[in-house]
């Protein structure tokens, strides 16, 4: 960095939803109770792991030992505190946690390149946390999945409206939805519109 240049203030991550994300209550809340509560999970660290087919066991052990989570079987996700590991394909996982360290470096250190390709994807996804009794209806507006049989710990890649998403089921009526960053504003508006008839509360990002 050239000495004469005065660096701007310390950078803050700018969410793709900035300018689109409005908190408050929207739509048809019955007795003040929303059918959906929505919040953006901001500043996530996300690392994509793609293991060589013959190194699946090594990666499993490394994640279990170094990240306290046993990688889930296909179409599942596991979660511990602020950390989750999502199965996103054969021998492919996403490690997700709130950004507080260089997660990519930590994963790379744990999993050498002889075992897996490891790629930083922390800025490539936007994540919404949805919770509420109308969750199934809202998701069913955009996805052909059978959400009656989709539950806690399930994890699928699917189409929601126009958008390719990963959905991680949490509890009986909650889900985290991950979508590519560039599509995020449109998906956010889609989620808001889809939720209006059930009553929507958008809370501060978490």
């Amino acid at each position: 960095m050239a000495d004469e240049h005065q660096a701007p203030a310390e950078p803050q991550r700018r969410s793709a939803l900035q300018g689109h994300y409005l908190t408050g209550e929207f739509g048809w809340l019955v007795d003040g109770v929303p059918g959906i509560e929505l919040s953006e999970r901001r500043d996530l660290a996300i690392v994509h792991i793609d293991a060589w087919f013959d190194k699946h066991g090594e990666v499993h052990h490394a994640l279990r030992d170094d990240f306290d989570l046993t990688p889930p079987e296909k179409l599942r996700a596991v979660e511990l505190g602020q950390r989750a590991i999502l199965s996103v394909g054969p021998n492919r996982w996403l490690v997700v946690e709130k950004e507080s360290r260089n997660l990519f470096a930590a994963v790379r250190k744990s999993i050498p390149e002889e075992w897996a390709a490891v790629t930083d994807q922390g800025h490539s996804r936007v994540c919404w946390r949805l919770e509420g009794p109308a969750l199934r209806q809202v998701l069913s507006k955009g996805s052909t999945l059978d959400f009656d049989t989709f539950g806690d710990g399930d994890c699928v890649g699917t189409i929601l409206g126009h958008f390719t998403v990963t959905i991680h089921g949490r509890g009986p009526s909650g889900a985290d939805i991950y979508c590519a960053r560039s599509f995020a504003p449109d998906l956010h508006h889609w989620l808001v519109e889809a939720s209006l008839e059930y009553g929507l509360r958008v809370t501060d990002p978490v």
Partner: peptide, 18 residues
Amino acid sequence: GTERGQHYKPRRRSPMHD
């Protein structure tokens, strides 16, 4: 259906869109 107006097709925005 919902594919009209803003949602006729998805739009991708770059981080510098605004």
